[in-house]
């Protein structure tokens, strides 16, 4: 007859991931490559924003992109046309990227000589917030049609990001998006967070975002 033995584990479910993430973050810092984790809902204009950003900065900063998608390469092809170094990561049905997948993506991309790598995470405001990818900074794009109440619905996401780009700001009047109310709601969850209203389509507000990025690259 077999007996039952208890093995104590007492380990947070995210601990292993957090450790891998920290190692990746340290290594990239030594190599002077800034990793930005860019998150958003589907349809927020993430790829359009990214393409304009690369076009504007490609003479100043050497940029690489990792496109995470559940299963397609539509976005990677758009980025590829900018001439930036890009790899496509398929999460194989998973709703987020973890640190190990990010590490493998970085290896596939070959970050040598790059100042900045942008990870375009899976479009979703829940799961990516849970897993540290190893990025130095977390940025999210919220688009105006999604509404100014999103910090109330996705507090975890808004609590872990360093900067929110409020995209499609040119359409604010059509969607009753109250930027001041949005800022007040955000401040309750994360007083440190930066907010930059932009329109990737018209170019409005893009300069402060480019400046923020350049500053982060230089600070690393």
């Amino acid at each position: 007859m077999s007996q039952i033995k208890i093995i104590e584990i007492k380990e947070g479910i995210f601990e292993q991931n957090n450790q891998t993430a920290q190692e990746l973050r340290n290594r990239l810092k030594e190599d002077k490559t800034l990793l930005i984790n860019l998150m958003s809902s589907p349809g927020s204009g993430k790829t359009t924003t990214l393409v304009s950003t690369i076009e504007a900065l490609k003479n100043d900063i050497r940029i690489g992109v990792m496109e995470a998608d559940i299963d397609s390469d539509v976005d990677a092809r758009s980025i590829d046309q900018t001439g930036a170094r890009v790899v496509q990561l398929h999460t194989g049905g998973m709703c987020h990227l973890d640190a190990e997948m990010t590490r493998q993506g970085i290896e596939a991309l070959d970050p040598s000589g790059l100042d900045l790598v942008i990870l375009e995470n899976v479009g979703n405001l829940v799961c990516p917030a849970e897993f540290d990818t190893g990025a130095h900074k977390n940025v999210m794009i919220l688009s105006v049609p999604e509404g100014d109440d999103k910090p109330l619905k996705y507090p975890l996401m808004f609590s872990i990001v360093d900067l929110v780009l409020v995209n499609k700001i040119d359409a604010a009047d059509f969607f009753d998006f109250d930027l001041d109310l949005f800022r007040r709601r955000l401040a309750k969850i994360n007083p440190e967070i930066g907010v930059i209203p932009i329109s990737a389509k018209t170019g409005q507000g893009m300069t402060p975002w480019f400046d923020w990025l350049k500053q982060q690259v230089h600070k690393l």
Binding site: M1, S2, Q3, K5, E8, I9, K10, G12
Partner: peptide, 14 residues
């Protein structure tokens, strides 16, 4: 806020 694996029970003699 905890979310952890506390322990596992295994067969001692297999």
């Amino acid at each position: 806020r905890e979310f952890q694996i506390k322990q596992i029970a295994v067969e001692d003699h297999y």
